Amino acid sequence: MATLLRKIGLIRLHDRDTEDPKHHQGSLKGTKGTPKNNKHCQTANDANILSTPEIKARKLDQHGKDKEKPGKDAKEKQQQQQQQQQQTGGSGNKSTAASSVPPLAPHRHHCTQVRTRRLMKELQEIRRLGDSFITVELVEENLFDWNVKLHQVDKDSALWQDMKETSTEFILLNVTFPDNFPFSPPFMRVLTPRLENGYVLDGGAICMELLTPRGWSSAYTVEAVMRQFAASLVKGQGRICRKAGKSKKAFSRKEAEATFKSLVKTHEKYGWVSPPVSDG
């Protein structure tokens, strides 16, 4: 009997462990913590993974990029505006100032410096020598506009005799220097007295090849030009005009410029060896 009861008990135990759904449910109740723990561990693991320095840095970097987008766009826009300003020569007051007072072109500025240095040097040299051949006065303190007094010509010439008889102490000339002097010749004309012949034409224009672009050399000094002029006066048999009325008529710059332009065209056509009679 006892053996039978033990058998029945074993069968019930087996059935309870294997077939009773309630037992499975009860047994699952005891294991519910495991899934929770597993879920908690997974969450914890996710949290731990996301809290690593690499992920944090990645998050911060992404967050920073999102923040920087507007600023970056603004910076790029500002750079584009600056480039446009540089291409258009700036803006605002700078642009206005640049447009109102344009700077000298580099070549022109260089020529102005060369002209100034050259004329200062020549003027100092003439004043330093202090000889009785020529003297120079600036017209209204303008370095580029000279009045030159020619005190001497060949003493054996008729012109020198005229100067003595008329008490003419000097022949006064005006010499103006262009922007690109000494690479271009000065414009020179006689002011007083009124001369005849000697290659001095209407308005006081002077017919000398070295005063033209074709005959000019930057090596010529003002003193050398004046010596050449003094020689041409004697060679061309220049005289002081003594005719009544005509001798009192002053030379004019406008007339001299027109005459010089005309004589240059004439000599370009016929040459400078034998100038026409009308040109002196």
Rank of each mutant, 00 (worst) to 15 (best):
F177W: 09
N48W: 11
D156A: 11
V101S: 09
I55K: 08
P185A: 12
L13C: 01
K235P: 01
K269E: 14
Q25W: 07
D156M: 07
R115P: 00
R118W: 05
P185S: 03
P103M: 10
L211D: 06
A258P: 00
C207G: 01
R115F: 00
N48K: 15
K67L: 15
R118P: 09
Y220D: 02
I8A: 15
L4G: 04
Q80H: 15
P102G: 10
N45Y: 13
S217K: 13
L233A: 01
K22L: 13
Q228G: 15
F187H: 11
Q25D: 15
M188T: 08
K22T: 06
Q237Y: 03
K32F: 14
E137Y: 06
T221Q: 02
W216R: 06
K164Y: 02
L150G: 02
T176S: 10
A158S: 07
K56I: 15
F177Y: 11
H14F: 07
S51F: 06
T135S: 15
E54K: 11
Q161E: 04
T135P: 04
V148E: 00
L201S: 06
P276C: 11
K269I: 07
K77W: 12
R194T: 07
S95E: 14
S27Q: 04
D73G: 08
T31G: 02
L143Q: 09
A250F: 00
L210H: 04
V222Y: 01
A57G: 13
P102A: 14
I134F: 00
L191M: 10
V264G: 03
D154A: 03
N37S: 09
K149W: 02
Q83D: 12
F229K: 00
K261L: 06
M208Y: 01
R227N: 05
Q81A: 14
Q80T: 13
Q161C: 00
M120C: 05
Q152K: 07
D73C: 09
T259E: 14
L150Y: 00
N45S: 13
L211T: 05
